[in-house]
């Protein structure tokens, strides 16, 4: 499979993992290994002195690049501060920008997200914004200097798959930066579809970490992303209304 390139950095895996929802660091570690991921998100939270083990140790051991997110932020100001704290704590200027509109849907707030993206780009960050499946917003964020765009397939953790494949295709057609399908993936066919639609990568967490067997689902996702990418590159046959014989019709 060809490399994924984000902001000049190469990744041989097109599956980006999240770390939320795993029952333990051991389960997470096994799932990350099985997924083959080279880029994985973490959240920033108040330090808990009682916490044992760190997700950072797991990522370091596996040689996986860390992508801090701004999960939990509701305003551009919160997100910018969280990104700056992540840069300070983790030594990376990459950030998955996530500004949530409300707790019931966890849908991204486009106004706050755009505001934060402009401020973070100006501050030298490599910004990967999580957005709705909105082609116009995706284009505006690319113009603002974002390194990728991350449209959702469906709400976070919903496992509803890609609710508007047409919009994802529109985003892909217009994008000059990588398009990463983020959120909503439920099972392997959803990940394959994202890649068949032309997305450059898939980001998922819950579909693996809350599967009954996370490491097995991680393997399925790795294979699905690969299969979807190859199918996209192969060029699928057109859909037809009626049959087209594949064997000669004359005896």
């Amino acid at each position: 499979m060809d490399d994924l390139i984000i902001a000049g950095e190469k990744f041989s895996s097109r599956l980006i993992m999240g770390t939320g929802g795993a029952p333990s660091l051991e389960v997470l570690d096994q799932a990350l290994a099985a997924s083959g991921t080279e880029l994985t998100t973490v959240a920033m939270r108040r330090l808990d002195p009682a916490a044992r083990g760190s997700v950072l140790d797991v990522l370091r051991e596996r040689g996986i690049k860390v992508l801090p997110n701004t999960a939990g932020c509701f305003t551009a100001g919160d997100a910018v501060l969280t990104a700056r704290l992540a840069r300070e704590a983790l030594g990376t200027a990459w950030v998955k920008l996530e500004v949530i509109a409300d707790e019931r849907t966890l849908l991204p707030d486009p106004i706050e997200t755009f505001d934060a993206a402009e401020r973070l780009v100006a501050d030298g960050f490599t910004v990967l914004p999580y957005i709705g499946d909105d082609p116009a917003l995706a284009r505006r964020l690319e113009q603002a200097g974002c390194a990728a765009v991350m449209p959702l397939g469906a709400p976070i953790g919903s496992g509803l798959g890609i609710r508007n494949p047409h919009n994802i295709e529109l985003i892909v057609e217009a994008a000059g930066v990588p398009v990463i399908l983020d959120a909503g993936i439920g099972t392997a066919s959803d990940a394959a579809l994202a890649m068949e639609l032309g997305c450059d990568a898939v980001l998922l967490a819950t579909a693996v970490t809350r599967a009954q067997r996370p490491d097995v689902m991680a393997t399925a996702m790795r294979e699905a992303v690969r299969a979807g990418r190859l199918a996209r590159q192969a060029g699928r046959i057109p859909r037809r209304r009626y049959a087209e014989a594949s064997s000669p019709m004359t005896p």
Partner: peptide, 10 residues
């Protein structure tokens, strides 16, 4: 004073 670190998430 806020003291933050990375945790599982996203």
């Amino acid at each position: 004073v806020e003291v933050l670190t990375a945790v599982q998430g996203g």
